[in-house]
């Protein structure tokens, strides 16, 4: 049985996929993941998940975020007075996300 392994580098970080192991059950999957993926790289925590339980949908299946004009849901659309600090921070995150999304959609790959 194959178990996918996700590693969290330090507390508070996300668990990121880092590989997979053969193991007969969850306890042994954790043990093998520890030896194979937590021995050398900085590791705070590991998750193991049965491979067959992972579902996937990707850009060939769907257009994430839709294809119609969605400018109404971006902070950048609404400009009046200078925004409060935390609102401006949110806007700049959105602006960056939209740019990245656009470069993918427009085939920048």
């Amino acid at each position: 049985m194959i178990w996918e392994v996700f590693r969290q580098k330090k507390a508070g970080d996300y668990h990121t996929h880092c590989g997979n192991v053969h193991a007969p059950d969850r306890d042994m999957a954790l043990l093998f993941a520890e030896v194979q993926h937590g021995r050398r790289m900085p590791t705070n925590s590991l998750w193991v998940v049965p491979k067959d339980e992972i579902g996937e949908v990707d850009t060939e299946d769907v257009a994430f975020g839709g294809t119609t004009d969605k400018s109404y849901r971006w902070a950048m659309t609404y400009n009046f007075e200078a925004a409060a600090e935390e609102v401006a921070a949110s806007e700049s995150e959105q602006s960056e996300a939209e740019q990245q999304r656009r470069s993918v959609v427009e085939g920048d790959d």
């Binding site: 194959i2 590989g19 997979n20 192991v21 053969h22 030896v35 194979q36 021995r39 050398r40």
Partner: peptide
């Protein structure tokens, strides 16, 4: 030696 055996396992996967 332990690293090398681990590399073998990664590659078989």
């Amino acid at each position: 030696t332990q690293d090398e055996l681990g590399h073998g396992q990664l590659l078989y996967r």
